[in-house]
């Protein structure tokens, strides 16, 4: 019952936070001088980006835990992080072009940030395909853990891409240096949105992790049932 009530609290907190962030994004935050209303896509695009990067970081942490300690929980955590992170990465790659088209005039450019984000998406896909198509669960866990650790190289490079290189993608507005930043109301709206999406990410992660653990219990019970039949 404790887990159920904590999930209920988490879901209500997430919902409230999302509603507040929507209010801030559409009502509180001012219009942008050059882009007009369309810039408000930032209040879902940037949070999706953060959540996708956190998602792969969860894969990395779980993969290290699995390879180091052969922890089933760590493996379940990595798989859960992959699935939930993939969803946020898809939303990131959907909102990006929807923002780019009216502002840049094109749906996509292959600059360092966008390319590395696409690579991140491919890493999520690769990880999930390995988990789905390897019949032997131990083999799947091992290979996925290797992909989870090696693929993590993309995360810091993707994050730093707009700082290291001149890109079509906008320069950072968070911790970007002396000339970067947003007006205060936009900043409040953005940080609230990032918090809301991370809250949603961890809620979905907990749900998915709980499901993964239940699936593992089911498989163990099935194996036990089959063994007693023989």
């Amino acid at each position: 019952m404790k887990k159920n009530s904590s999930m209920t609290v988490h879901s209500l907190l997430t919902l409230a936070w999302i509603l507040i962030s929507l209010y801030l994004a559409f009502i509180f935050a001012p219009n942008e001088a050059n882009q007009g209303n369309v810039y408000r896509i930032m209040y879902i695009h940037v949070p999706c980006a953060w959540s996708a990067l956190v998602g792969y970081t969860v894969i990395f942490a779980g993969s290290v835990g699995y390879l180091w300690k052969r922890s089933q929980f760590a493996d379940d955590l990595a798989y859960a992080g992959a699935e939930v992170g993939f969803i946020f990465c898809c939303c990131l790659l959907i909102t990006g072009p929807l923002w780019a088209k009216p502002v840049w005039g094109v749906w996509w450019v292959w600059d360092p940030r966008t390319t590395l984000t696409f690579v991140l998406w491919l890493l999520f896909v690769g990880y999930l395909l390995l988990r789905t198509f390897f019949v032997n669960p131990a083999q799947a866990a091992l290979l996925s853990a290797v992909v989870g650790i090696i693929g993590f190289v993309d995360v810091p490079i993707d994050y730093m891409a707009i700082r290291w290189w001149r890109t079509q993608h906008p320069q950072p507005v968070i911790m970007g240096g002396p000339d970067s930043g947003l007006p205060p109301r936009m900043e409040i709206a953005l940080f609230t949105s990032i918090g809301a999406f991370l809250c949603l990410f961890f809620y979905l992660l907990r749900q998915r992790l709980h499901m993964g653990t239940a699936r593992r219990d089911l498989e163990q019970l099935r194996r036990g049932e089959t063994a007693t039949e023989f």
């Binding site: 369309v38 408000r40 896509i41 969803i87 939303c91 959907i94 909102t95 009216p102």
Partner: peptide, 20 residues
């Protein structure tokens, strides 16, 4: 440019929340 391109904004939010 205030109300121009609002369809992109609407699409972005709608798709994302439907996905979630």
């Amino acid at each position: 440019m205030g109300n121009a391109n609002n369809e992109y904004l609407f699409l972005a939010y709608t798709i994302v929340w439907i996905v979630f």
